[in-house]
């Protein structure tokens, strides 16, 4: 399966990546190659094989429901570009 340049632009937009138009053919080729590999794997008969959600054959360890984090707001907000009244300020987003 070969990706066209529009699809590359869409993928970049979804991932919020800025890309140069000049690089698009190169990205399209690389991504298409990856899809080609996936297609190759898809050809293998996997009937009776359970889908794998994770490469490790272990299950999730669980945490007790106990508070272990204290308030570090001042510390975290030191690296924020803008804060006010304890809130992080970001460019206006409204749906």
């Amino acid at each position: 399966m070969a990706l066209n340049s529009d699809e590359v632009r869409k993928i970049a937009h979804l991932a919020r990546l800025a890309i140069n138009d000049a690089d698009i053919p190169e990205y399209a080729r690389n991504l298409s190659n990856i899809l080609g590999l996936v297609e190759q794997m898809s050809a293998i008969n996997t009937q009776g094989v359970a889908p794998m959600a994770h490469p490790l054959d272990v299950s999730q360890r669980l945490r007790e429901d106990q508070v272990s984090e204290s308030n570090q707001r001042e510390h975290f907000q030191q690296i924020a570009p803008q804060v006010e009244a304890g809130l992080y300020l970001v460019p206006k987003v409204i749906e």
Binding site: D65, V67, E69, N71, Q72, R73, A85, G86, L87
Partner: peptide, 26 residues
Amino acid sequence: TKTKIFSGAPTEYGAEPNTQACAVDL
């Protein structure tokens, strides 16, 4: 629950903004 689903930060309602948001939540 007393804490978040993936972190040990408390879930109490009505706390001062961002005082219950730890590194995982951020």
